[in-house]
Amino acid sequence: MSAAAAAAAAEPAEPVEPGDTPSAPDPPAVSGAETLHGCPVGDSLGAAVVHCNRDQYLDLCSALKADGYALPVGVTGVDYLTHPGRDLPEGIDAERFEVVVELLSLTDRARLRVRCQVPGDDPRVPTLFGLWPGTEAHERETYDMFGIEFQGHPDPSRILMPEEWEGHPLRKDYDTGHIPVQFKEAPS
């Protein structure tokens, strides 16, 4: 066997086998329970979704991390400006923005989505960087695209757009086709 094959195919001394450890604590009952850490849980086409307000956001996420959701899959935003009538559980008031966090628990092979309501007139949420450093780039992208400020983020700068860019492109009130094209001898 070649060296490369030996290095890779050989099982590690103590491979981390997700889900194969019988002693692992039971996953938090997501499907049956109505709430999780005080926040309403919904089902979105088979995926578990926790809804929260901005005030509950950081506490909820800390609790979820303690539950074993160790891998931050991603953070993104949605601007519901032109689609206000969406289904939300009771106790959650629809706001303009949503910050959507996708989490993964390797030990339970479980996924969970957190949807946090963020008001349009004050788009600020606390950063999750302290819990999962892997949210750093995602939060910068969300800030860049939606103008949602992540308080306490170590590097709150634009990531994809040029730094002097005005506006946040994925907002629904940001029109496309803004760059003027000038032609010779044509009034523009």
Binding site: E14, A70, L71, P72, W132, G134, H138
Partner: peptide
Amino acid sequence: AIGLGVTGPLLRSTGVAWDLRRDQ
């Protein structure tokens, strides 16, 4: 790797046997 949200061959190189084709 897990804290940074790293996946794929990069995560598997650390000894975490996680491949969505097998695990989900």
